[in-house]
């Protein structure tokens, strides 16, 4: 049971959190202007890197707030946790 540090509540057990997939994938401002292929790409395609990955999490059973994190998909370590209004930290 990993600990995840909610930026608002502090470290809590992972069971309190829900995963939200890749971060920094904003909903297109004008979906109507996208081709079917572009829209499908937005809907169904996400990166799947080995190593650091910027993701969205929500402290679902806590403060209910969303935040972003850079997590290593191999070690599961959280390298950075940052609020939605903060820029993605530099990672190697």
């Amino acid at each position: 049971m990993q600990l995840i540090t909610c930026p608002y509540c502090g470290p809590r057990e992972e069971a309190e959190f829900h995963y939200g997939g890749q971060a920094h994938v904003p909903h297109p401002a004008d979906p109507g202007s996208l081709s079917d292929e572009e829209w499908a790409h937005h809907l169904f395609f996400r990166d799947n890197p080995r190593g650091p990955f910027a993701e969205r999490w929500v402290h679902a059973l806590g403060c209910r707030r969303w935040f972003n994190a850079v997590r290593d998909t191999v070690s599961y370590r959280f390298h950075h946790i940052y609020r939605l209004d903060q820029a993605r930290p530099e990672t190697p």
């Binding site: 939200g20 909903h27 929500v58 209910r64 969303w66």
Partner: peptide, 14 residues
């Protein structure tokens, strides 16, 4: 649904 609403509110339309 509550989580769905919060997601859009917080991540897309703050």
């Amino acid at each position: 649904v509550l989580e769905w609403m919060e997601e859009w509110l917080q991540t897309e339309w703050p």
